[in-house]
Design a binder for these strands. Sequence first.
DNA 1: AAAATGAACAACCGCAGATCG
DNA 2: TCGATCTGCGGTTGTTCATTT
Length: 294
Amino acid sequence: MGRSPCCEKAHTNKGAWTKEEDQRLINYIRAHGEGCWRSLPKAAGLLRCGKSCRLRWINYLRPDLKRGNFTEEEDDIIIKLHSLLGNKWSLIAGRLPGRTDNEIKNYWNTHIKRKLISRGIDPQTHRPLNSTTAVAVTTTAIVGANACLDFRNSTPPSKESTNSINETTNNLCMPTKDNSSSVHDTKCNSTTTEESRPTPPPPEEENAASHALDLELSIGLPFQSNYTKNASFNSSSSAESKAFFDFLRPEKATPSTAAVVVARAMCMCWQLGFQNQVCSNCQSYNGLYRSSYC
DNA sequence: AAAATGAACAACCGCAGATCG
DNA sequence: TCGATCTGCGGTTGTTCATTT
């Protein structure tokens, strides 16, 4: 069957945009707003594919873009979010106002990757480069546990996994003083097996992962919002898993969805900025409940 | 000064999910 | 319910600029 091409390729320009093309696109969007990228080129008098127009606008012409170098703080946020989300550039970009997914992706590939490697950290796994065995074992363990909160998988949580998340929510926790534990220590109080514990990373990784960084992913909402108080959470609710993914998209997230999601997926230690100490509840440094709860 | 090399960034491509009729 | 279409995402490629030899 196959799909029709997004545009008539024979009559479209490719390559770098000219100033005139940029101006036409800006003028059109100012007058008519975004939307219907397919018909936009013709309407705006551009010999470009709709996708190309969209990309140009989003990555380069949008007025709210923040150009210029990334700050150290942005670096830390990107690293932290990447460790949670993987290559979900659009989600990461959603947490960095003024930055685009493409920009972050490029920046990751050209700067941060190298930075992490020079620190002896695998940029994909965020673990020490020489601990591949431990990583493999850990990964297996997590997958075996249905990876209930594996953000690196773009598939929304299954009903079962959402259930698991529910069971671990609203538990206030405070960090322990166990500073001897590693960043990724998995002293899970349930079924995590001994062999699933990863090798403790070197102190350097702690910096890289920036555990002390409070990203305010909770948007500062209290747990006891009306939603969280009153809603009878049906763990198999698709609305809830939708809320989770909406949360990761700021333009879609509402205060209620954010509160719900944070309450369900993140431990309180995350919100309180205790990520530099192992938490007695979630048993991790990153505020994420371990998959062993699943 | 010129060529070679590497880094940075813009843009393209193909795919998957969402939406609509 | 299903197919067609649209949109957005992530990976990859191509081009430009800077640095090194």
